[in-house]
Design a protein around this nucleic acid. Structure first.
Lengths: 265, 265
DNA sequence: TTGCTCCTCACGTCACGTGAGGTGGC
DNA sequence: TTGCTCCTCACGTCACGTGAGGTGGC
């Protein structure tokens, strides 16, 4: 069976089949050494069709190769299972994507940030400190939040609002993040607990409604607002998670972003 | 503001920002002609952050460019709306993907096709005929099915099973497809109605459970089975949709694929 | 013999990432 | 002055698609 016939049978292009030959995914059973013509057997139709199906699912060629090479059913299930997990993560991300675009369309209004200034007394944040990688800021912060939650639960401490995270103003590759609760009472610190003082004075803050991936928009709006007015932001920049992300859907999340300002008294 | 600072502020890489400059997406407000250094303004942080967000949603650079160039809110909404529709389709496809992979994992069993032979008397198929493009075979066939459904409803004809579609054995770029119901009674044909005789004799058939995108697997299994036994398939190859695709979810669909054989009597 | 199929380069797509090798800015 | 940031090529990634220019097979 020449390449064109196989292509029509399994709904692939001739170019794709030649590519799979070059990649060692599916070689013809016989190639004429003079003409270079590729000839396939009828048994290869189902393999080619499986490849077509997997490729339509965006399974990479390398993964398909290892799936075809799998000797046991279990090995095959392992390869496909990994791919399914991958697809599941992808699906979740896509769902977020869709909602984000919808938000961008519906409310240019919801995307406007109102920046307010307020006076605040110095305060104490009690919790944990760790490092986060800039590329994985959201998940790494999430992990720290969980640790802080666990720690605070054992000490019986609670804050009026949700957890607060402190970030440096400039995001390096790996940054130091502190997460905890703002506490007014005096407590004895347990091992592993970290305490950080937040400066008093004028703070600027804005509210963000929606998933955490969109938080950079709030940062940009806040910092631009301050820049326009000639204000200088001090460290740390803080995020307070006013809605519990483990029980609310991402587009319902409410987060306050705030920074202390360097203002003459 | 140099490029590195902007990159950290909006969580983009320096490479990406240079790329956006080259693509005309986001040019620095000033480029030093001697050193080539790019300098950005604070106002560009929010634009860059929006770009970062849209790119994380896989919105192509060309689309972002037109979104940034949109002069009215409506124009912007139109661009983003198109992108949202695109993402929605993508999401639906991904969902299918996930289920298909799960099926591939769970049941290597469910993916096995049992081919049966049976004798059949010549029959008549009454319905509509149209062309379908090989790359859009499933949607084009769906359209024809809807037309056939509408036509049959006006004539009061019903078949015991669902609609049946007839395909040639070899799929060209554009192929002729007939869709309709198999009818035993004699009826007067209305204008626009097409009648086709199906040959009697021995037919081979197999059942496919699941979405239509996986049907090529059934074809491959059926044709390979016949090839192994030295049988020759005749045209047309038929698909009978035993479960209504408009009311059932794709993984519940049941389809019979059948072909007449060229057997000596 | 005609027309169709098939062949092999070589390059394009898309949004960057990855060095190499070098220079500017504080 | 040191070390960091920034620069520009040039090439790689991934799974093919798109011609160009030519030949084999029925």
């Amino acid at each position: 069976m020449p390449i064109g016939r196989l292509a029509r049978l399994c709904r692939l292009t001739v170019k794709a089949l030649r590519h799979y030959d070059a990649q060692g995914l599916l070689a013809p059973t016989w190639t004429d050494p003079r003409s270079g013509y590729r000839y396939y057997r009828a048994e290869q139709v189902s393999t080619a069709t499986s490849i077509a199906l997997l490729r339509s699912l965006d399974v990479p060629i390398a993964v398909i190769r290892s799936a075809l090479a799998a000797e046991s059913e279990q090995a095959l299930a392992a390869v496909l299972g990994a791919e399914r997990d991958c697809a599941a993560r992808d699906l979740a991300a896509r769902e977020q994507t869709l909602r984000s675009i919808e938000r961008l369309i519906r409310g240019t209004d919801a995307m406007r940030y109102h920046v307010t200034l307020h006076e605040q007394r110095p305060s104490r944040l009690v919790g944990v400190r760790g490092t986060a990688r800039a590329e994985h800021l959201d998940p790494d912060t999430g992990t720290l939040c969980a640790q802080a939650e666990a720690l605070l639960a054992t000490t019986g401490l609670t804050s009026d609002e949700g957890l607060t995270a402190l970030f440096p103003l400039d995001l390096e590759d790996t940054i130091s993040v502190t997460v905890g609760a703002i506490i007014s009472s005096t407590v004895t610190l347990r091992p592993g607990t970290v305490e950080e003082m937040l400066p008093g004075g004028t703070w600027a803050s804005t509210l963000h409604v929606g998933p955490y991936v969109e938080l950079p928009l709030a940062y940009a709006a806040l910092l631009e607002h301050l820049h326009e007015r000639g204000h200088t932001a001090l460290a740390p920049i803080t995020e307070t998670y006013l809605v519990d992300p483990t029980s609310a859907s991402p587009h319902e999340l409410l987060t306050r972003v705030a920074v202390p300002l360097d203002l003459p008294d």
